[in-house]
Structure formats: C-alpha cells, structure tokens
Design a binder for these strands. Structure first.
Length: 238
DNA sequence: AACCAGGACGTGA
DNA sequence: TCACGTCATGGT
C-alpha cells in the first residue's frame, strides 16, 4: 500500500515538521507562563534529553486523554510550579494538591489515580524502557497512551493511533469506520519502515490535518487528501 | 448554550 | 465482543 507513504509525503509537504512531543520544560520556554503553546520543537529529534523531559511526556500523555492540549499544558505548568513534575516529588505531593494542579484537564479524580499508578511503575523502571504490555497493564494506560509514551518518551518506533487517524483514514476508505486499534496500527506499520522520525511526524501530521479539516462540523469530503488519493472521488463528489 | 477535545474503564447484554 | 454510560474542565 504505497498510499500510506504517499499520504505521509503529502502531509509533510503541506505542514512540515511538527515538533512533537511538545515540552513546557524546554530551552527558551518559560514554564511559569500558562497557555503559551511554545513547547513544539520542529526539526529537533534529540528530545527528550533529560529524565525530567521524558517524565513530562509520560504525564502529559495521560493528562491529554480526551482533552485539548492547552488545558494539558496548564496542568503541566501547575505541576512544574510545584516542582512536582518529576517522579519522586510527584509521589510526595498530597492528593488534594495533585488534583488541584491537574484540574484544568478534567477527570481529575481518575487522572490523579492514573498518574500515581504510572509514576509508581515508572520509578521501578530505573531507566529501563518499558514494554507495551507492561504499560497496558497499568490502570489508566490504554493503547494510545502506551504507544505515545513509547514513541515520544522512549523513542521506540511504534505507531500511535487516535480518533483523528480513524476519522481521516476511514473517510479515505482505507479502513473501516469501527476498525480495531491494533488493526489500524498494523496498516501503518506494515507499510512503513520502522523509522522513528517518520512515526513521530506522521502521527503529529495526522492530528494537524484533522484539526484543520476534520472537526466534527466540517464536511470531510472537502479534505484535500480526498481529491488527491481517492480514485473514485469524482464519483462521490457531485 | 450545546458541543467537543491528541481516551480509558466498567457494566450489562 | 459490542454498545453505552461515566468521568469533568475550558474553549468555541
């Protein structure tokens, strides 16, 4: 399926490098300023370069579950101000303080529990890279979160699937609407070399493309990829 | 003023 | 396995 590669090239050509995963704790950033959205680092593939950055990506991937990034950034910034965006300090933090800090992301009761459970496991890792199965065994870590952690925090070329991916590629007719996560994942991994940069960029590009063309109220048929890659598009577009 | 966001889990069929 | 319901804040 050459088309999986062609779509990647088209997206990259259109939007360029996305600089994922964004970090509030990054050179030049001011972690005390909320809502800045300046953590993207296009073209810099050497991140994370510190343990704190790696941990920040993990916690961010949990906090951003079904939540906009602006709110996630607020929560991360709150934790940073409390000097608690690191494993041991976070475990010492009181429950009410933790919940207050992450409140902007919603689901703060569940997410506090998820973060604690993950951090407890993270500490036992001692710098080792976790397996996908280990991550999935933690309460609150599902497939997308596990893959995000592996791809962006631990630099393992494993493809991340999200709701946007499902929307775009089912619209293009390349998968079924309700296709299983692992089935969609295989579609990408079977048609791409396991290249870390490509995997990181592709997922980020999908999110960017979906934000522009796949908001639930927009007409998906107007998606530029549609015209370009679906051979029977002319038949469908009246 | 509904509707949705870079999901995951629990439950009953 | 499948189809819902629940969790919760902030932006548009």
């Amino acid at each position: 399926m050459q088309i999986i590669q062609q779509i990647y090239k088209a997206l990259y050509k259109e939007y360029g490098p996305q600089g994922w995963w964004p970090l509030i704790d990054y050179k030049g950033n001011n972690p005390t300023k909320t809502g800045s959205i300046k953590g993207y680092h296009p073209g810099d593939y050497n991140l994370p370069e510190t343990q704190n950055q790696r941990f920040e990506i993990c916690i961010g991937s949990i906090l951003t579950q079904n939540t906009g990034w602006v709110n996630t950034e607020r929560a991360l910034t709150n934790l940073k101000k409390l000097h608690s965006l690191a494993p041991t300090p976070l475990m010492i933090l009181q429950d009410d303080e933790l919940k207050l800090a992450i409140k902007p992301t919603g689901y703060f009761n569940q997410k506090a529990k998820k973060i604690r459970g993950f951090t407890e496991f993270y500490i036992t890792l001692n710098d080792r890279t976790p397996t996908r199965e280990e991550l999935l065994s933690i309460w609150g870590i599902g497939k997308e979160t596990a893959d995000s952690i592996l791809l962006y925090a631990f630099k393992i070329p494993t493809f991340v699937i999200d709701a946007y991916t499902r929307r775009i590629f089912s619209n293009l007719g390349l998968i079924e609407k309700n296709a299983e996560y692992d089935k969609i994942k295989s579609l990408f991994e079977n048609n791409l070399k396991p290249n870390l940069i490509v995997y990181q960029e592709y997922h980020a590009l999908i999110v960017e493309h979906a934000k522009r063309h796949y908001s639930k109220k927009t007409e998906h048929i107007l998606c530029p990829l549609y015209q370009k890659f679906v051979k029977w598009a002319n038949f469908l577009i009246i």
